[in-house]
Amino acid sequence: MNPTPVHARPAAPAVASADGPTAIRTEGLRKVYPRAQGDLVAVDGLDLTVEQGEFFGLLGTNGAGKSTTIGMLTTLVTPTAGTAWVAGREVTADPVGVKSRIGVVSQANTLDGALTVMENLAFHGRYFGMPASAARRRALELLEQFGLADKATAKTHQLSGGQARRVMIGRALMHVPEVLFLDEPTAGVDPQARDDLWQIIGALHATGQTVVLTTHYLDEAEALCQRLAVIDHGRLLACDTPDAIKASSGAQTVIAVRYDADAAPAADALHHLPGGPHDVDIDGPTVRVRTTHPDGVLGHLLRAGATADLTVRDAITTPPSLQTAFLTLTGRDYQP
Results as ranks from 00 to 15, higher is better:
215 T>L: 06
88 G>Y: 10
238 A>I: 14
299 G>I: 14
225 C>V: 13
144 E>L: 10
244 A>F: 01
61 T>E: 13
256 A>L: 04
155 K>H: 13
27 E>T: 15
229 A>M: 13
282 I>V: 14
241 T>P: 07
53 G>E: 00
257 V>A: 11
111 L>M: 07
184 E>F: 04
182 L>I: 14
69 T>E: 02
217 Y>A: 11
111 L>K: 07
260 D>S: 10
2 N>K: 10
60 G>A: 11
35 R>G: 15
306 A>S: 11
266 A>S: 08
96 V>C: 05
324 T>R: 11
38 G>M: 07
120 N>F: 07
99 K>N: 07
290 R>V: 11
47 D>C: 10
176 V>C: 06
189 V>W: 03
176 V>A: 13
159 L>Y: 06
327 L>P: 07
149 A>Q: 15
175 H>P: 09
74 T>Q: 05
255 I>K: 05
116 T>I: 09
311 T>K: 02
113 G>F: 03
232 D>N: 15
188 G>K: 09
101 R>Y: 09
29 L>R: 05
67 S>V: 13
130 M>G: 10
250 G>R: 08
183 D>R: 06
27 E>L: 12
225 C>G: 10
313 R>A: 09
219 D>Q: 14
44 D>N: 14
51 E>S: 14
286 T>Y: 02
159 L>E: 06
319 P>Y: 04
238 A>T: 14
315 A>E: 05
75 T>L: 05
139 A>R: 03
56 F>I: 00
135 A>S: 14
221 A>T: 07
208 G>Y: 00
55 F>M: 09
229 A>L: 12
4 T>Q: 11
117 V>M: 03
255 I>P: 03
36 A>P: 01
75 T>S: 04
129 G>R: 00
73 L>M: 05
294 P>S: 08
142 L>V: 05
168 M>E: 15
